[in-house]
Design a protein around this nucleic acid. Sequence first.
DNA 1: CAACCGATCACCT
DNA 2: GGTGATCGGTTGC
Length: 215
Amino acid sequence: MKTQTRNESARRGRILPQRFYARDPRIVARELLGKVLVRTLSDRVPELAGRIVEVEAYLGQDDEAAHSAAGETARNRVLFGPPGHAYIYFIYGVHFCLNFSCLPAGQAGCVLLRALEPLSGIEEMARARRINSVRLQSPSGRKLLTSGPGRLCEALSITRSALNGAALYLPDSGLRIVEDAFQPMEIGESPRVGITKSSALPLRYFIAGNKFVSR
DNA sequence: CAACCGATCACCT
DNA sequence: GGTGATCGGTTGC
């Protein structure tokens, strides 16, 4: 299923305010498409940035696939806190995944980032992902940078110890989401990837036709 | 104390 | 394109 969206008021570079996240994860997920994730590593290194092209919504209730489904624990505490914070978890003993907390404090919905289109700092991303410069020349090589939830975290040096709980709406937290110039986009929907419970819900959203969508 | 995973890679056709 | 190996934190028994 595909639908059209439009956002006339986009102002490039404006940080999304906390209230952007204080809504249903399905709305937040769709509106995050086309926005830009900016990662600041230090004052000395140029910022890394990528356009959000694929996300999944995890609901605050009636969603058995959500980490919050079994209630609050030490790991998922951020999900139950205020909206607009990074929830980062470690999966399969190897990878990190980045989520944004949604809904007011006390409700635990979130959005998982599944793929970015690299915009700047591509050389640095390739170093972090151990992709050599020859491979980076090809479309398939560039897709290895940030197409996948574990890949994008590795490319942007996003770890739980560094960024779990970070406020996405503050300019100095190392991770923020900004608006980009308006561009027409068609949004595709599908079931979410890699889960077994609540697997039929169509809560994965992506920019139709974008080459950096993971699948 | 052990099963469970929201993924990726190498290697195969 | 498809298949199998893999790792370790988190959780609940």
